[in-house]
Design a protein around this nucleic acid. Structure first.
Lengths: 149, 149
DNA sequence: GTACATTAAATGTATGTACACTAAATTTGC
DNA sequence: GCAAATTTAGTGTACATACATTTAATGTAC
């Protein structure tokens, strides 16, 4: 659906302004689609992202600062996301003996099994992105990269 | 900058997966740029968006459900955003006599003056979008609309 | 016209984001 | 070796999101 209809705004100041709103709106739309798919598994999107970072390290532990470094949103609060994951027994936390300021965060077998189930959902190919041809996806990537130049 | 470099991920599963992450990341990037600009004015991005909807209606009042309908994020809580705006004297709230379930929300002169100041920031032309040609912005809009089909 | 359903707004609870601050451990600079 | 600076994690607060529930008003069916 055209963006004008979706937010019931008849005109934008410019094609630029429309594109601006369109990026924000589409991002939101994609996140909500993904969130729906995540529901049955009982983890939120940021929790899932942290688990994926931990799986990438496995069987080595990760520290909180390492998690922050790899997160899409660097200003979010990794400590509290790890809190939630610990409460669900998806990670363990243990003070690191070499540097007692840091904490070793380890993904549990339970979480690895969960991620394995969830792997099917991921990658954008199951989302609205499938409406694009490969060529179009490439064009989209080029344009978005250009915005952030 | 190419998305691979920005999130330190060397490869994506597909052009689709990359586009998926790219939309989310670029949206986040744009929001953070805008958020920085908003700081001095003392309103958050969702509060600003609600004010703009109210200005669009002015001098007619808007109801909460009308605001929700026009918001980018339909599931956010318009009541509480209006609470904050009311506390800052940027809107007034008054029970509607014709239908006492609904509430007339009106933008104040103070808010109109504030928005006028903030207009300079808005529209995407001052943001990264200016890196695109008009033709490119149009292509971007077409592709994003297609994702949400 | 009374019971039931629907609608509009608000509220409750859990989670996450943004940003400042604290506490403890380590590093550094002299 | 010791004081100061830095690093790491965690905490506090304000705001927003997500979603279920509540309350009051209105609409509809019988």
């Amino acid at each position: 659906m055209k963006i004008e209809e979706e937010i019931k705004q008849s005109a934008f100041k410019s094609e630029y302004h429309k594109a601006y709103i369109n990026v924000l709106y589409t991002s939101n739309w994609l996140e909500q689609e993904q969130s729906k798919q995540f529901k049955p598994f009982g983890v939120t999107l940021p929790q899932y992202n942290v688990l994926r970072i931990l799986r990438g390290q496995h069987p080595k532990p990760a520290t909180i600062s390492m998690i922050i470094e790899r997160m899409l949103d660097k200003t979010s609060n990794a400590s509290r996301i790890v809190d939630k994951l610990e409460a669900k027994e998806l990670v363990t936390r243990k003070q690191c003996p070499e540097d007692r300021r840091t904490v070793d965060v380890l993904i549990t077998d339970k979480a690895l099994a969960l991620l394995k189930q969830m792997d099917e959902l991921d990658g954008g190919t199951k989302s609205g992105l499938r409406n694009l041809t490969e060529q179009e996806a490439e064009t989209l990537n080029t344009l978005l990269d250009k915005i952030r130049d």
